[in-house]
Computed example of a mutant assay.
Amino acid sequence: MKFQIPLTPGTITQFLLRVVTCLVVISFFSEMAAYFLPGVRSENYFVKVFSVNSERNIPTAYSALALLFCSFLLGTIAYMKNLDSCRYKNHWKVLSFIFLYISIDEAGQLHEKLVQPMRTMLNATGILYFTWVVPVGILVVIFLLSYIKFLFHLPVPTRKLFVAATVIYIGGALGMELVGAYQASVAGEDNIPYKIIVTVEESLEMLGIVVFIHALTSYIKTYLGGVSWNIYIQGKQTQVTEHENIGIPALSAPANTNISR
């Protein structure tokens, strides 16, 4: 018995948008409940499990998996570009490894370990209160400058989606982080404005990743012929030599070869 699960851009995007919406809404109302309802505290199990401002919970797991999925899609594209000897094949590989690291960082909150040493070194207050944005911001600028040629070699629809995803994600991860840092340094983190800022920040990050996944799956479908999972389940009439197999078949020939290499 064989099942085929295509990576359809529209289907994946709609599913992820529903997941993100549910996570953000549940997180926001759980935070508000902890702030307004008597007997409900921020240490409440439900709040900790669903709050986007907490670590190692459901929103964190989702974000880490979404970033890991980006790494997988980028790795798939890098594999095909390597077969075609595309001059930008290494750019795709580097992107895949970057998103793998970001996924690990999201799961383990590694960047948070930079906060205290950098805060002490810079004697930081105000918008630099969460000081990890300083080294990360520098790295982001260097990365963007080094990928300008790569960006302009992409098809126009893919390029627009890449830019939109970058603006949305960085706007949340760095832009709203600076706003939240200022609020935290002035009034602390246990107040409604800070909780709203964090919710907006995490929402933008998750939305940016959804847009990026849509860009990658659309690129694979349009310019690389698409990709799908085939699931084979051993039936009663199957020969003994057959085994259960779950795998990803080779990508078909590019559907549109009119693309810069």
Rank of each mutant, 00 (worst) to 15 (best):
K2E: 14
K2H: 06
F3C: 06
I5C: 08
P6Q: 03
L7N: 12
T8R: 11
T8W: 15
I12M: 04
Q14G: 13
F15W: 03
R18Q: 07
V19H: 01
V20R: 09
T21A: 13
T21I: 12
L23M: 08
L23P: 13
V24L: 11
I26C: 03
M32A: 01
A33T: 08
Y35K: 10
F36A: 13
F36D: 14
F36N: 07
L37N: 11
G39C: 04
E43H: 04
E43Q: 11
E43R: 15
F46Q: 13
V47F: 00
K48E: 08
V49Q: 14
V49T: 12
V52K: 02
V52T: 10
N53Y: 09
E55M: 00
R56D: 09
R56I: 05
A61F: 02
Y62T: 03
S63M: 04
S63K: 00
A64M: 02
L65R: 07
A66D: 14
L68D: 08
F72W: 10
L73F: 12
L74Y: 11
L74D: 15
G75L: 12
G75Q: 12
I77T: 08
M80D: 12
K81H: 11
N82D: 11
L83P: 07
Y88M: 10
Y88H: 06
K89G: 15
K89N: 04
N90R: 13
K93T: 14
L95Q: 09
F97K: 14
I98H: 05
L100I: 12
I104F: 15
I104K: 03
D105E: 00
L110H: 08
L110V: 07
H111I: 14
K113E: 14
V115C: 15
V115G: 13
P117E: 00
M118E: 12
R119E: 03
T120P: 08
M121V: 04
N123S: 12
A124Y: 03
G126E: 04
Y129F: 05
F130Y: 12
F130D: 10
F130S: 10
W132R: 03
V133G: 06
V134K: 03
V134G: 08
V136R: 06
L139N: 15
I142H: 01
I142S: 03
L144W: 07
Y147P: 03
I148Y: 07
F150E: 13
F150A: 12
F152G: 03
V156R: 12
V156P: 02
R159I: 02
L161W: 06
A164Q: 01
T166D: 06
T166E: 04
Y169L: 01
Y169F: 01
G172S: 03
A173V: 02
Y182V: 11
Y182Q: 07
I192L: 02
I196W: 00
E202G: 03
S203E: 10
S203N: 04
L207H: 07
I209W: 07
V210M: 05
F212E: 09
F212A: 06
I213R: 07
L216C: 05
L216N: 05
Y219H: 09
Y219N: 08
K221M: 04
K221T: 01
Y223W: 05
I231L: 07
I231W: 08
Y232P: 06
I233V: 06
Q237M: 15
Q239F: 14
V240C: 09
V240Q: 09
V240P: 15
T241L: 08
E242D: 13
E244N: 10
E244G: 11
I246M: 10
A250T: 05
S252Y: 09
S252L: 04
S252F: 06
N256E: 00
R261A: 02
